[in-house]
């Protein structure tokens, strides 16, 4: 998550109760925070909710932030926890992605992809692959999903993930490996798209 030299100034001012400094700190990180939350949830409303909750926690805890880790890494940790809490609280919540539609009995089925026309359509295949990856990610436990997104999509280093999740680096590596294997299994249904099998 992007950090600037001036975020430490804003953090110090926020710790002293300067609301406008905190407001600027939020502005500095909110888009990146939303991007991460969206990649976890794939639901715009839920992502905004997760981010808003995360910043409430940041606001309440900023006094205890000691800059031992980067603010961005701390924020990743808080967003991940908020996301996990949301999922725990709301296991029964049904979300409908843009790529899916609901049958009358409430089940989700894949929306039919319209034939894009003559010949192979690279864009359609890419889109189908993205959709399959998202569906596969959603089948994984939330914790694994968060790790995969942090490492492979958000491009965080092992050390940053270890800090964000408060885990030893070795554990991060082995859990990431397990998560990748789980993702590969989940993608078997779409073997043709990924040439897995």
């Amino acid at each position: 998550m992007s950090t600037g030299a001036d975020d430490s100034v804003l953090i110090r001012q926020s710790q002293k109760g300067d609301r406008s400094a905190f407001d600027r700190l939020v502005r500095m990180y909110e888009e990146k925070a939303y991007q991460y939350a969206y990649r976890l949830t794939h639901d715009p409303d839920e992502a905004a909710d997760v981010v808003a909750d995360a910043f409430v926690r940041v606001y309440n805890a900023i006094g205890n932030f000691r800059s031992q880790s980067a603010f961005g890494t701390w924020l990743y940790r808080i967003i991940t926890n908020c996301y996990l809490d949301h999922k725990k609280k709301d296991k029964s919540r049904y979300t409908t992605s843009l790529d899916t539609a609901q049958t009358p009995d409430g089940q989700e089925y894949e929306r039919q992809v319209v034939d894009p026309g003559d010949g192979p359509d690279v864009e359609a295949e890419r889109s189908a692959r993205e959709s399959a990856v998202q569906t596969a990610l959603e089948q994984l436990p939330e914790y694994q999903r968060a790790m995969l997104v942090m490492y492979h999509v958000e491009n965080l280093a092992y050390e940053e993930i270890a800090e964000a999740l408060d885990l030893p680096i070795g554990t991060v590596k082995s859990r990431l490996n397990r998560a990748r294997l789980a993702l590969r299994e989940a993608l078997r249904e779409d073997a043709e798209l990924f040439k897995i099998g």
Partner: peptide, 27 residues
């Protein structure tokens, strides 16, 4: 292949809602 598929999501554009800041501060 799986890693490549995951990392392709880095380029997926994610646009924050226009009122995100407001929603955060309201919360």
């Amino acid at each position: 292949v799986v890693v490549q598929a995951l990392e392709a999501r880095r380029d997926e554009p994610v646009e924050a809602p226009f009122d995100l800041h407001d929603r955060i501060m309201a919360r």
